[in-house]
Amino acid sequence: MPKPKDEFDTLYGYLLYDPQDILDDEYMYTVPEIARMLQGLDPTTELSEDTEDRLVQWTIPWIIQHEEKFVINDPRGDDPGYFGLHPDFVADEDEE
């Protein structure tokens, strides 16, 4: 059920990053690692299973929305897939 805004103590702007803003173009990342980075955390930060599950649920649509900006590897065995920046979306050093 909707609630009036004045029922909330704090309200924040909703900011979603571009993949180039958070990913290093030299690395590939799992979805949970990307989820942490979207929260401003180190990709190796330990999280509770519930917290990680929630962050991953928020991250998957973000990845899908930016699909053209990613490359993915062919997973090996039970290893997860890794995502990295597509070369077409990596800024040239001249542009930085």
Rank of each mutant, 00 (worst) to 15 (best):
E96C: 12
Y17F: 15
D21F: 12
T51S: 09
D25A: 14
L47G: 00
N73M: 09
E93G: 05
K3W: 12
Q39I: 10
I64S: 08
T10H: 14
D53F: 15
V71K: 05
Y27G: 02
Y27K: 13
H86T: 02
Y29G: 00
F89N: 03
I60L: 12
S48K: 04
D88Q: 02
L11Y: 11
E46L: 13
V56D: 12
E49S: 10
E33L: 06
I60M: 05
N73A: 10
T30E: 06
L55C: 06
M37I: 07
D79I: 10
D6K: 08
L11W: 12
Y82K: 12
Y17K: 10
Y82H: 09
T10M: 12
E49N: 13
L38H: 07
R54L: 15
Y14A: 12
D79E: 14
Y14P: 08
A35R: 04
P87Y: 00
E7I: 07
E93T: 09
E93H: 04
D42K: 13
A35H: 07
Y14C: 14
E52R: 10
E67T: 05
T30C: 03
T30K: 01
D25S: 14
E93V: 08
L38P: 08
P61F: 00
H66N: 08
P87C: 00
P75G: 06
P19F: 01
Q39K: 10
L85R: 03
K3T: 09
E7D: 05
D94I: 14
H66Q: 10
P61R: 00
M1G: 15
E26G: 04
E33C: 06
D78Y: 10
D94Y: 09
L23M: 07
G40H: 10
D25V: 07
D6C: 08
H86C: 04
A91F: 08
V90L: 03
T59P: 01
T44R: 07
Q20F: 15
R54E: 15
I72S: 08
K5S: 08
H86Y: 03
I64N: 09
I64R: 07
